[in-house]
């Protein structure tokens, strides 16, 4: 029996040492990846996300997304264009996308990507930049290399931004506080993973994030509102 307890002890200590010393987070030293504890400012709290759709739409979906999250990217590239065409363009739905960058240990470039979108947003092209990031997701996510040059290339060639303004914006890092504010606001709403959806203010717990599921949900919410 003693030998058995020694075996348990060796397995336990070996496992804990491997987990702790072999995988400890941090040490990346990149300014972009650090979580910035920027004090809340009026401008940060007034920004309520990237909005698409009619102000009078009966249903609003708030999506908390991380641009490096693979499910967000697949959803954004495959399902969202259909939702945009069938629900948003027809005035049935308004979409609000909020930044929810996961911790840098999980997604190293989320905040850089979110800042790139914010800088495109200054020129009224946030959604185009989001499309570029999601449709080229595999080229930049989960990689060690800094994707800033890739983002800049898409901002110039695909989105058509004024690059002098874009470069100045990225250099300033002025939206880092806003991105962090959005994350903290999501945390206050108990957002745990991405994408997380809120439908007219209520979290939508769903296993199905296909465009068909969104169609059914919007129809259902709209019908309920009509009955009242």
């Amino acid at each position: 029996m003693k030998r058995f307890y020694w075996l348990l002890a060796v397995v336990l200590v070996g496992g804990v040492v491997w987990i702790w010393f072999g995988n400890k987070a941090g040490g990346q030293g990149v300014e972009w990846v650090a979580e910035t504890k920027v004090p809340e400012t009026k401008a940060d709290s007034e920004f309520t996300g990237y909005v698409m759709g009619s102000e009078t739409a009966p249903v609003e979906i708030v999506e908390y997304a991380d641009f490096e999250c693979p499910i967000c990217a697949t959803f954004g590239a495959v399902q969202f264009p259909v939702i945009k065409q069938q629900l948003i363009a027809t005035g049935k739905l308004r979409w609000r996308l909020r930044d929810f960058p996961l911790p840098p240990e999980v997604h190293m470039w989320s905040r850089l990507a979110a800042h790139s979108v914010a800088c495109a947003g200054e020129q009224g092209k946030a959604w185009e930049m989001i499309d570029a990031l999601f449709s080229h997701h595999r080229m930049w996510s989960q990689r060690r290399d800094d994707p800033a040059k890739l983002f800049r290339g898409w901002a110039k060639d695909l989105v058509g931004l004024d690059m002098t303004k874009y470069d100045a914006c990225m250099e300033s890092g002025r939206y880092r506080g806003r991105i962090q504010y959005s994350r903290e606001e999501g945390q206050a709403r108990m957002v745990g993973g991405t994408p997380t959806f809120f439908v007219n203010g209520q979290e939508w717990h769903t296993r199905d994030i296909s465009s068909d599921a969104f169609q059914r949900m919007v129809d259902s919410v709209t019908a309920q509102r009509r009955r009242r």
């Binding site: 496992g15 804990v16 987990i19 702790w20 072999g22 995988n23 400890k24 987070a25 941090g26 991380d66 999250c69 693979p70 499910i71 996961l102 911790p103 240990e105 999980v106 997604h107 989960q142 745990g192 993973g193 991405t194 994408p195 997380t196």
Partner: peptide, 28 residues
């Protein structure tokens, strides 16, 4: 324990080889 420590940000990127650990671990 390894997966949980990763989920709460204590340990870094999962050593996943050819798998899709991040896809699963960051899903809702």
């Amino acid at each position: 324990l390894y997966l949980w420590l990763h989920a709460i940000g204590v340990v870094g990127e999962l050593k996943c080889g050819t798998g899709s650990c991040e896809v699963v671990q960051t899903s809702p």
